[in-house]
Design a protein around this nucleic acid. Sequence first.
DNA 1: CCTTACATGTAACAAGTTACATGATTAG
DNA 2: CTAATCATGTAACTTGTTACATGTAAGG
Lengths: 187, 187
Amino acid sequence: MTLRFALLAALHEEPATGYDLNRRFRDRLGHVWNASHQQIYRELARMLDEALVAVQPVPQADRPDRKVYRVTQGGKRALQAWLTEGHPRPAIRDPFLVKLFAGELLNDADLERDLAELEAHYRERLRTYRSLERRWFPDERNLSRHYRLQYMALRRGILTAESWLQWAAEMRERMLLSARGASKGNG
Amino acid sequence: MTLRFALLAALHEEPATGYDLNRRFRDRLGHVWNASHQQIYRELARMLDEALVAVQPVPQADRPDRKVYRVTQGGKRALQAWLTEGHPRPAIRDPFLVKLFAGELLNDADLERDLAELEAHYRERLRTYRSLERRWFPDERNLSRHYRLQYMALRRGILTAESWLQWAAEMRERMLLSARGASKGNG
DNA sequence: CCTTACATGTAACAAGTTACATGATTAG
DNA sequence: CTAATCATGTAACTTGTTACATGTAAGG
């Protein structure tokens, strides 16, 4: 059910089409929530049905009409009610960690490749987060509560990426013995 | 599909019943993978169908028979093949972070309560992980590769918990201004 | 009396993924 | 020619959750 409230929160900030929401999730909310466009369109249809959102069609030449969604009073109430509820922490389901339990079936070459991919992934994430930081929160000391909250979500993304990179370094030390630039002086 | 390989890896280490596997996931693998008993029984049935596992019934007085599953040759091959594949990092879907995007609709009291719950959760996780560390990896310097891999998975759990606690402290500093024991001498 | 551990499942539902469908415009 | 952006969806499938079902024995 959280997708629904993620959409309501996004639309509460600013009305948007399904397409816009998809881009927002992909470009600026990847560290908070993920959803495909199919999921978004389906959930918007349901929410429209339950009158949590309303739609304003905007005709366009040569393209499908844009359907701009906004949160209704009922939607706002639903979101507010949800905010007062507690929620369990998301369950951990990580294929990379599962592999570590295959013991001798997992060889060093595969482990090394997965680890390199993981490091590349989180380095890329870090770059994205740093760029979001510069674009949206340039004056870190002087943010409204609204932006301070969003900044803290981004901080979470940054800490997660850093924590994984730290772990990856530990892995190399303890499992692979070879540093990143393995060709030079590693006697 | 990862559940399947998590089960294969667990059964490869030691044959077990669905019930046993459920306990293993709950007690010792919560930082790696999560699954309910219904999911486990369903997946075991499928894997039996595809001959990735075999079953040995063990009759018991006054209880349902224990059905001890073990990995077959085909199952081992499937697991090995899976280990050579790359896998995308799991998508982030965190209701707590979604709440931060509700802006002024989220009040300090609710935020404070959620944050306290989050801290309690990860402090509890840390306690569990520390106890697993003592029980399974007492001599950290002297582990076989097999156990070193599992130890690194546990390290991941520990780093995750620590990272969230660090973030929670940042949250208090930046959003709530009140330290944990707010009643005593706080400016 | 009540809960927990033991031991297995079925059924219905919700959430997320993958494949398919349409069609114009712009950039390389 | 090819891919990406814009803009909407449907359909089928897989994965994960919740509710229900059965029955004994031990511990507080």
